[in-house]
């Protein structure tokens, strides 16, 4: 660097041959809806890049504990690296403190882990769903560099922008001019999540094949799968 500076007219940034991109968008969407004593999180199972579908049965929901599930989409290799790192760190926490990480702690840790790669980010869209220490449903959503926000519902991933307004309307009650937001029953949350994916599969080519839906309550986690368009 210093040598170059002594020859100003030759000062060039160096050979910038860069046809390799470390990033790739592999698609996939996540929807999470929290209630008083439950949280629903769903993600589709299509893994693709461009017009190519790699597999139609890639689970994108990572169960981190009895109370916490992480949905992660975007650059699949980053998702794999990030989730295995989260798992490793959670195991270390368990060994050190002899207890499982709370959802709040996982949420904070995830933010830090992602910000650690501020200048070479994990290119992922994360939605973390879980029960908090009071047993209430909670959703955290992230941007690729670790900004973290606690909410009650969120759509993320390739159809995130498509679905968020739907949730605003159906779950958030943004259409109604009310002070007290309506409480969403579990069955409605599940139906909205499923419908959201059916709609997303219509318009987003990166979302489809099937959707896996996990419901977290104090009694544990249940899972169901709904088929989507496969074209």
């Amino acid at each position: 660097m210093h040598k170059i500076q002594s020859f100003p007219e030759y000062q060039v940034p160096g050979a910038q041959h860069q046809d390799f991109s470390p990033y790739e968008s592999n698609g996939g969407s996540i929807v999470a809806i929290a209630g008083e004593d439950y949280v629903v999180i769903a993600a589709d199972t299509r893994l693709s890049s461009g017009y190519t579908i790699h597999t139609r049965k890639q689970n994108k929901l990572f169960q981190l504990s009895e109370k916490t599930v992480l949905g992660s989409t975007g650059c699949w290799c980053d998702t794999l690296a990030l989730t295995s790192l989260v798992n490793a760190r959670m195991q270390m926490y368990e060994h050190l403190h002899l207890k499982t990480m709370s959802t709040e702690a996982v949420a904070q840790m995830l933010s830090i882990l992602m910000y650690n790669r501020r200048f070479f980010p994990y290119y992922v869209s994360n939605v973390l769903a879980g029960l908090d220490s009071e047993g209430k449903g909670v959703v955290y959503s992230y941007d690729p560099i670790g900004h973290c926000e606690r909410t009650t519902y969120r759509a993320g991933g390739s159809a995130g922008t498509l679905l968020q307004p739907v949730l605003d309307n159906q779950i958030g009650g943004k259409d109604k001019d009310v002070k007290n937001k309506p409480k969403v029953p579990l069955e409605k949350a599940k139906e909205v999540a499923k419908d959201a994916f059916i709609s997303a599969a219509e318009r987003d080519i990166y979302t489809g094949d099937s959707v896996i839906l996990k419901v977290i309550t104090k009694d544990g986690i249940t899972e169901e799968e709904v088929q989507l368009r496969k074209d």
């Binding site: 990033y23 592999n26 893994l47 790699h54 597999t55 049965k57 890639q58 290799c77 794999l80």
Partner: peptide, 11 residues
């Protein structure tokens, strides 16, 4: 080459 990995019945 990016470390993207998946399992399936046919790849």
């Amino acid at each position: 080459l990016r470390g993207r990995a998946y399992e399936d019945d046919v790849v």
